[in-house]
Design a protein around this nucleic acid. Structure first.
Length: 114
DNA sequence: ATGGTGACTTGGC
DNA sequence: TGCCAAGCCACCA
């Protein structure tokens, strides 16, 4: 096929929203956290906090992305403390040395900036 | 097309 | 410090 109109994307296929979020998420260092809104900003998706939540909820099970480093603007874990994911998030953060005081992230680890 | 939903955020008390 | 109402925006029935 010599033509290229509607056939193959020869240009960089623009990354999907998910891709952008995955990339930004992968860059968050261990032991630090970001908020949903921040992650959106880092991914080039301003005001997308709710969408970030949606995307994280739908992460493929085989993903190794550090989704547990995403917390809400109040400095807390958004998942229910009784839910399996919520429990896992808390455990993983603790493993990384992120301290929770009364359910809140201690200021030492609060919000990572690139 | 339309209205409901939600791992959210912000401003006002 | 915490609760509420609005705003927000992709997804879904």
């Amino acid at each position: 096929m010599t033509n290229n109109d509607a056939d193959e994307p020869r240009r960089d296929p623009e990354p999907s929203r998910e891709q952008k979020v995955y990339i930004a998420l992968a860059a968050i260092p261990q032991g630090r956290v970001v908020t949903y809104g921040q992650l959106g900003d880092l991914a080039g998706l301003p005001r997308a906090a709710r969408q970030i939540g949606y995307i994280l909820r739908n992460l493929p099970p085989e993903s190794t992305l550090p989704w547990h480093r995403v917390i809400n603007a109040a400095g807390k874990i958004s998942l229910g403390p009784e839910t399996e994911s919520g429990i896992r998030q808390r455990a993983r953060l603790q493993e990384e040395g992120v301290v929770l005081t009364n359910g809140r992230i201690s200021l030492k680890h609060y919000r990572w900036q690139p």
